[in-house]
Design a protein around this nucleic acid. Sequence first.
DNA 1: CTGTTTAATTAACATTTTGTTAATTGTTAA
DNA 2: TTAACAATTAACAAAATGTTAATTAAACAG
Lengths: 254, 254
Amino acid sequence: MKNQFITPDGYTSDIAVFTITSEQVGEYKPPKKELKIMLIKRSELDHEGNPNREAGKWALPGGFVRPGETAFQAAERKLAEETGVEGLKIKHFGVYDSPGRDLRGWIISNAHYVIANEAALRSRKKTYDASEIELFSLEEAVELDFAFDHRTIIDDALWFIKKDMALTTLAKHFLPEEFVLSELQGVLLTMLDDPSISTDAAFFRKAPTLPFIEAVCEDGKPKKSNRYSKTPAQLYRFNDFQPIVSVYRNKLQG
Amino acid sequence: MKNQFITPDGYTSDIAVFTITSEQVGEYKPPKKELKIMLIKRSELDHEGNPNREAGKWALPGGFVRPGETAFQAAERKLAEETGVEGLKIKHFGVYDSPGRDLRGWIISNAHYVIANEAALRSRKKTYDASEIELFSLEEAVELDFAFDHRTIIDDALWFIKKDMALTTLAKHFLPEEFVLSELQGVLLTMLDDPSISTDAAFFRKAPTLPFIEAVCEDGKPKKSNRYSKTPAQLYRFNDFQPIVSVYRNKLQG
DNA sequence: CTGTTTAATTAACATTTTGTTAATTGTTAA
DNA sequence: TTAACAATTAACAAAATGTTAATTAAACAG
């Protein structure tokens, strides 16, 4: 161990921003939902007018972490700078540090995923850093030309999101504060393949007993909504219950 | 973005090594099991004879990642160098990059946990880097004086291990290749608090149906062991089944 | 006004899993 | 022989799930 260590050439924070878009498919019908990822196209020139590495390719939003801040704080900052979005769920899921992953040198990427509900993303904007910013479905995304190892990072992010969706109340961040069961079901089905979710009778019987959601009341009466059906549907909200599951206790899928 | 980025002063790989020790409590009895963590005492002088930062304090094994290797590879290397142990389950669980966490400068720690079964640790050794290397129970560990933010890292590691223990077949790495149900139960109980594990009748009824373990056979007959009981007990081994649980499908604890 | 349509539920019932307490089994050691 | 004891297995009520069918409530067409 020397006093003067060999140091990396850079430390970046990258963010895979996911959202679920709703496409209105008819009046009084649950909308068609689709998982999308937000990507930016790297501009030809950087802030100072120098040619940008990997220009023209698609990449995750992100950038260099500044001294005095953490990668998490950098993620918040970059997300605000590049997309104009604040106050979202940000979670670290991995570090990418293979030699050669970035031609500029030894650069370590601290990767995060972000869940945004559609409403939050409405405020997004273009900036000098991103010549283009766009939402892609995952089918579209596989066709793109990615900068660095961002394709791998995105694949991993997706895996972590699916896992967290099944094991935690992550779905909350894709939904509005108050939602109906078919909305929750729709969100879950974009990511998870499980008969206990896709079978209506099973889902509607089980969901109201889930300890981490609760029916919304107004003036002591159940609060209902007609936004997706003629029949008024009960509104629910997430509470703070943190569910715990175990492979030794519970019945397993597959 | 400049061509010459501001760079961190170092990138380290730290490893929280856990094992479960078995204390023989009598013949034909399941042993008393206890979770322990391996720590090293930072030596007074480094390789080159200079005074070491945070000397005399307890710390996780680890060290600087070299250019050309990943933090994961560094973890493997350091683990071999400092403890003489190879071939263990290593898993990344977090990054520690708060400004000021290391007085030597802006130093980023990529943290891993390692699960070792007791047999693997028998080969551990002292080296020039670690003036002392020792296993501590978690009760003992809370009393220690830790270098850097290693106390926080250990707390987090423990949380991740408990989670992975409940959600994956991680328990496998604490056990020998072939084990008896009471051994599995003992390992699980050192980390998890669940009546379906601690209640013998429930555990012994459920365990043989778990899809990720299977009874060991020899010459077409069930293979049994007397190592912890007079009654011969069936031996099991983990297979490659990856269990999946979901908070929306399964009954929840708490 | 009346029947039709559709999402949102609820019902019903057989099947599986649990929670729980009690009984068996196989082996050693007195 | 028998006591002891870990390792099972049995037994049965209570809960949860898989599945198919029925009900409900509003909107809309006629």
